[in-house]
């Protein structure tokens, strides 16, 4: 199990010592991911979801808060000794084209982490070869075909499978999939999603799914939780189906309303919410972060910062003073 409590991260943008602008990427985020579970973070770009994924994969530092990996609080460890723990969380990049070194074959790409693993566990070369083939078969590739090839000889979908296989070389507890299908052909996306789902079942790997596509998040973990992040704050959190069917935060409702409707196949939700456009994020912090764009804001929203809770007796947690269920999601008009 992996938990986070009050994770904050502030980026200082360039401008040197004098005029650096601060961007709060994460404002105290709490989360829990069970073994074999699925948690999805959705939100717009720049909302902090990618930063959180990178922090968990050990690629980025965090300013404050506590991350507990399998019962070990990271704050109790020195920087160096945290690395092996963070290594149990592997990041699957959005871009399968840059995630593999173009100058190295798939065999070489898998060999490096496997030899590290073999050294740690005292295994032989034979084990490495076997393991490479096993992992490629696991992600649905033909090892004989893939191993001697260079990345450019494989399709985007195959490359992403190789990337997943490479992440599995270190026997991770969790995969962080950051928009892992957004650069893959539409007809191949579902295959990658199904693979991630399958890995949850077969290996007990938990999946942290980072996306702006709510439907894919639903596909990965119908049993999981959905976190909606806006400007570094979790504004709504709950079981996937609840948040999609009965969203209460206007931001969640805006996100869901913005999903294109397949007219002819679907009927748009009746209460779609259209937010005003993103505004300059330099407003003061003593207000709801979404207030400036919210069509339902009141006096209270601009003078006080709401916190995550079950106010109004909702099933999910939310950070809104005026939670109101709205049906915004399109419903099917015909069955295929």
């Amino acid at each position: 199990m992996i938990t986070g409590k009050g994770i904050t991260k502030t980026f200082r943008q360039r401008g040197g010592m004098l005029g650096g602008r601060e961007v709060k990427a994460l404002r105290g985020v709490d989360f829990t991911i069970e073994k074999g579970g699925a948690v999805s973070f959705i939100g717009e770009s720049g909302c902090g979801k990618t930063t959180l994924g990178r922090i968990l994969a050990g690629l980025e530092s965090y300013d404050s808060g506590e991350i507990v990996i399998d019962g070990v609080p990271m704050s109790s460890l020195r920087q160096k000794s945290r690395q092996p723990h963070f290594r149990r969380i592997q990041l699957i990049h959005q871009d399968p084209y840059s995630a593999l070194n173009p100058a190295r074959t798939i065999h070489q790409a898998l060999d490096a982490p496997l030899s590290l693993r073999a050294k740690q566990t005292g295994r032989s070369r034979a084990w490495m070869e076997e393991r490479a083939e096993e992992l490629l078969s696991l992600v649905g590739l033909d090892p004989g075909y893939v191993l001697p090839r260079y990345p450019h000889q494989l399709s985007g979908g195959m490359r992403q499978r190789v990337v997943i296989a490479r992440a599995l070389t270190v026997d991770p507890d969790m995969l962080v999939a950051d928009e892992a299908t957004s650069m893959i052909d539409v007809s191949l996306r579902l295959g990658i999603l199904a693979l991630l789902k399958d890995l949850r079942d077969r290996l007990g790997v938990s999946v942290l799914f980072i996306t702006h596509d709510v439907a894919t998040a639903r596909y990965i973990g119908l049993d999981g939780e959905l976190y909606v992040i806006y400007r570094g704050q979790v504004v709504e959190r709950g079981p996937v189906e609840t948040v999609i069917a009965d969203p209460v935060h206007p931001y969640t409702q805006s996100l869901l309303s913005a999903i294109p409707v397949l007219h002819g196949l679907e009927v748009p939700g009746e209460e779609r919410v259209v937010p005003t456009e993103a505004v300059d994020p330099s407003q003061q912090d003593a207000a709801c972060l979404f207030a400036a764009r919210c069509p339902f804001r009141t006096e209270r929203c601009v003078s006080e910062l709401p916190v995550l809770g079950h106010d109004g007796g909702t099933l999910q947690e939310h950070a809104c003073f005026h939670p109101q269920r709205r049906s915004v999601v399109a419903t099917p008009a015909v069955q295929l």
């Binding site: 290594r87 593999l100 982490p113």
Partner: peptide, 20 residues
């Protein structure tokens, strides 16, 4: 991506510089 991935996998600096 591939350099970040190598870091995430815990590969050594020598490997990253020399092989990636």
């Amino acid at each position: 991506g591939f350099v970040e991935a190598a870091r995430g996998l815990g590969l050594s600096t020598t490997h990253i510089i020399g092989k990636e």
